[in-house]
Design a protein around this nucleic acid. Structure first.
Lengths: 130, 130
DNA sequence: CCTATAATAGTAATCATTACTGTTTTGATA
DNA sequence: TATCAAAACAGTAATGATTACTATTATAGG
């Protein structure tokens, strides 16, 4: 399996630089709608293909949640997320040190590459509403 | 919103009791194929509807992963999972104490109902293969 | 038994994502 | 700068898991 040579594309650049302006983990469709402001005839397939490629290259992270579209995160350093089950919002969560601790408590056979932690609940704004 | 009165159904009982025999977190389709041995004309929609109902009742847990079908877990006490990115297998992981620790390291605004932790990597069997 | 309604089987629809196809862009080389 | 293979693209069709719909059947209270 030969490593295929990467060629630059303005579509990919636009997708990545748009994502870097956002802290709200947008979906492929949101990215599409926004990048379309600059590149009107970009196709949704191109957005998906480049998001997959960027994820593979480790430049971004893909976040999957129950029952909703995948989201994309420009922040690749280890951190975890909080998701509001009322409004669907996804926020970053700091967990200084705790991520390493958890590994010392487990006994998993095999090799661990990645750890995903998501807190599910109700965000402040949605708490205030009801 | 009136609480609708639950009526028993042999389909739901069969789904739940089948799931309780398994430790491998089967998908809706696997559950369907197995329950079909006993109830040949059960429909896939019935399986999905009852899995959703049982999840809502808190009798089982639904597990969502990137790129694959949802899985269902008869074990409702807090624990986390390991997923092999090679073969897709999902295993239970013990994390005595560590789950509580992580919360003390975070500072989330809002109310937390649930914490999901998944380790991604390569399982022992798949490591041996290559 | 009667009746209201929960639950069902079977099928159709939805929706996010991926695959396909013919065209355009990129970049290495002459 | 002209040539050429491969990467990337736009546009569209296909996929696959899940949900919604509809007419029928099963459940349970009076």
């Amino acid at each position: 399996m030969e490593a295929t040579k990467l060629k630059k594309s303005k579509q990919r650049d636009a997708i990545l630089s748009f994502l870097k302006t956002r802290k709200d983990h947008p979906t492929a469709d949101t990215i599409y709608e926004n990048v379309r402001q600059d590149i009107p005839n970009i196709s949704l397939g191109t957005v998906y293909r480049n998001l997959a490629l960027l994820t593979e290259l480790g430049e971004i992270k893909k976040l999957s949640f129950d029952g909703s579209s995948d989201r994309y995160d420009p922040e690749t350093s280890p951190h975890c997320h909080f998701r509001c089950r009322n409004c669907g919002k996804v926020m970053d969560v700091e967990v200084d040190g705790a991520m390493e601790d958890i590994l010392s408590h487990t006994n998993i056979p095999g090799q661990i590459d990645e750890q995903i932690t998501v807190f599910i609940g109700t965000c402040e704004q949605c708490m205030d509403k009801y």
